[in-house]
Amino acid sequence: MDREPILRWVKTAFLVAVFILLVFNFHWLEQLAPSLFARRGIMIERIPLPVSAWQHIYLVSISSFLSILCAVFLGTIAFFPFARDFKELFVDLSSLGETFPSVAIIALTVPVLGYGFWPTLLALYIYGILPVLRNTITGIENIDPGVMDAASGMGMNTGEVLLKVALPLALPVIIAGIRTSVIINIGAATIGATVGAGGFGVPIISGIRSYDIALVLRGSIPVALLAVAADSLFSNLEAIFEARR
């Protein structure tokens, strides 16, 4: 085993550890740089940081899980001969979802879904589809045509070609798409705070409202750390599946 992959995981573990420590002990940072975190505003956060972290991760996990499921499913469908014509449509539709600001999706769906969790989940879900869908389709399209030809030429049916050859070979590319999608959603989920979905957006939004930098940092530092940790985690997964090819 190379040392490089081990170092990668050490880095990931370190980032995760720092994130967890910081969420439970944010006052350490405040004591480290008291001038920066001096309270100027009048707002005092009522939600403990670990609760915000849990809400945030919960929201991102559920929405990302649903986006990945939907995107891989659609990307896979596009592989079948009968659906070739839909491929463009799928990508166009998800691009449309991507260009539509998530704030707008939230604003539009609140009247129907009410405040809180659901409109935010919907917005993040729609937002998360495109990167995964696009990578699933290109990942499968970029497989050496000789390999695909051999697979069906040897007597695999479409499903077998897909499960035994196409998806395993496209996996690193699909994971790269998941990585982009999850990281986008970790940042975008802060918007949820505007409609009461909780998460790290709560201190950020209240900090902005009260001109309280300390409060903004209380939300934004953990969000940034979470995104970096997730990025490192997925890049490791990518490397694992890349090595398997």
């Binding site: 050496d144 000789g146 390999v147 030809d149 051999a150 697979a151 040897m154 070979l169 090819r245």
Partner: peptide, 11 residues
């Protein structure tokens, strides 16, 4: 069935 670029499954 044997083809020019072999098409061995890399995984």
């Amino acid at each position: 069935y044997v083809i020019q670029n072999v098409g061995l499954f890399p995984h």
